[in-house]
Design a protein around this nucleic acid. Sequence first.
DNA 1: CTGTTAGCGCATTCAC
DNA 2: GTGAATGCGCTAACAG
Lengths: 335, 335
Amino acid sequence: MASVTIRDVAKKANVGIGTVSRVINKSTAVSQETRQKVLAAIQALGYTPHPLARRLSLGRTLTVGVVLPFLTLPSYVERLRGVQQMLEDSEYDLSLHSRENPAKLNQLIDELSLNKSVDGAIVFSLIPSELQIQQFAQARIPLILVDACHPDVNRVYIDDEKGGYLATSHLIELGHRKIAFLSDYLENPFKFTAMRKRYDGYRRALEQAGLPFRPDYHQEGTLGARDSFEKAKILLSLPERPSAVFAASDTHAVGVIKAAHELGLKVPENLSVVGYDDIRDAEYLDITTIHQPLFESGKESVNILLASLIEPPEAPSDVKLPIELIIRGTTARPT
Amino acid sequence: MASVTIRDVAKKANVGIGTVSRVINKSTAVSQETRQKVLAAIQALGYTPHPLARRLSLGRTLTVGVVLPFLTLPSYVERLRGVQQMLEDSEYDLSLHSRENPAKLNQLIDELSLNKSVDGAIVFSLIPSELQIQQFAQARIPLILVDACHPDVNRVYIDDEKGGYLATSHLIELGHRKIAFLSDYLENPFKFTAMRKRYDGYRRALEQAGLPFRPDYHQEGTLGARDSFEKAKILLSLPERPSAVFAASDTHAVGVIKAAHELGLKVPENLSVVGYDDIRDAEYLDITTIHQPLFESGKESVNILLASLIEPPEAPSDVKLPIELIIRGTTARPT
DNA sequence: CTGTTAGCGCATTCAC
DNA sequence: GTGAATGCGCTAACAG
């Protein structure tokens, strides 16, 4: 009923509460004898330190906040998994913060930097405002950006421009000349930048190969297979139909493949498709794609965070994770 | 630098800290005049109440814990989305707890019921032990089971046996006689029960139609499309090949469809497939399936939780959500 | 080594 | 209405 506190333990063990605290935090030396007494009392009473009291006293929340736009994207979930797993053996809790609305999301980040509710924050795909970055710094709350970059902030990311270039080049090397690009909206309310960079890589590869950029070969659609499907159908119904599509995410790629089937096109015989991200489904659906270490990016962000918590670093971490073209079954020479 | 506390605000506004607290919690009456003074001081100092101190004093953690086995299953993520969205406008934080290992997961639930770290807990697909259920009750921590049932605990669930029956009956009504069943392991370390019930429904439908149950028509594989793919190939390579497969989850169904393609079978012309869950991909991939309100189940669990927090209910909530057969493009009459 | 005391920052009685 | 005092449960600094 009445929660058992450290005082109860102290009384039962005939020691002061300080000693009990010492035993719990296995910090300073306590004689073997009294330690046993205390341990026995704790056992007998089924005592558990009250986390809030402990944290308030410590001046640490022992909580890591993860901020992400939405859970509907497999890549975010995979990153979250990485974060979760890395936090598993630490003393930190994971508090999840997500808002599917850009304004609310922004407000969320603000609160996280102002309310002293987390010891550190990991943000996916978003670049906080300069002010927010200052607020985190001022509050001494380590901030890690995943899949986003800012010179003053710890970051774990990949070279998206290069990824776009790799994907497109692969198609060019196979002999494709008519290469379409399907992406999320380059300009978007969340201000994601990855799509823009992949687009830049696409353009660069085309240019380098002396291929013209055709605006009608570029379609934008919301993330998610549904819209991709519709947009892909537009691309594949063009008078001069592309022989290959670079889809800026695997989810988009699924849409393209579906559209191809719908239009009676065989992949990769009649249409080559390259995706991006290498989410779990990509391997399974045998999609040629740009692999990016999603799970690892989550883990790495936690590593940086925990290290920063122990000792504030001089300069922000800059971890560029490797990407790799994974050739699977959705790309082939044009026929 | 030095965190601004309630005391600073009080000093600046020339009032006592009690008054500041009253203004913050808009509880007791405060004169319009002093309220303005306090508000101004708060504004000027950029004061934010320290969450931990507030919670310790209130005796409430203002945190809801969600426990789930893994994030690799789309249906869990969708449920989590529902929880998150419902919590968004509340004063509660969401702490995420997941362990992909049964033993660790069990330990997690134990801690949650013992450590006073959450005001309420939502558990996905698992039935805590009797002892754990008692611990939650004793700690007065409302517990909500989603996709799992226990007579003494709040629960949000669906009738899985009926779902299995509906799916199988649909195939029978189309004229199928050779109906295979692909599911997760009926006996599993997490002790999930949904699969077993869907299996029971499958058996009942067969029996009712006078169709024999054939053990070789039942394959079990881990969740996830990969393994489903392999197991589906076994089913589809049987001498007497089934004309239809009831897949106990949409993820399994995707595996079956993939296997069918691999073996040169057209869906639904040569093979009908019914899935289960109606995850986002199912609509998109046009899979006939049993719809279950995943997102809503998450929302509903929060509703029950918040209500229990305001007023402990006499009896546990029992919310059975409706399921529905959604006929899409993967089922047809056998040819 | 160990008991005691003083906060951590806030909510909430109490008197005024 | 409002201020001061008490306590939430714990850690840490301080004496002994």
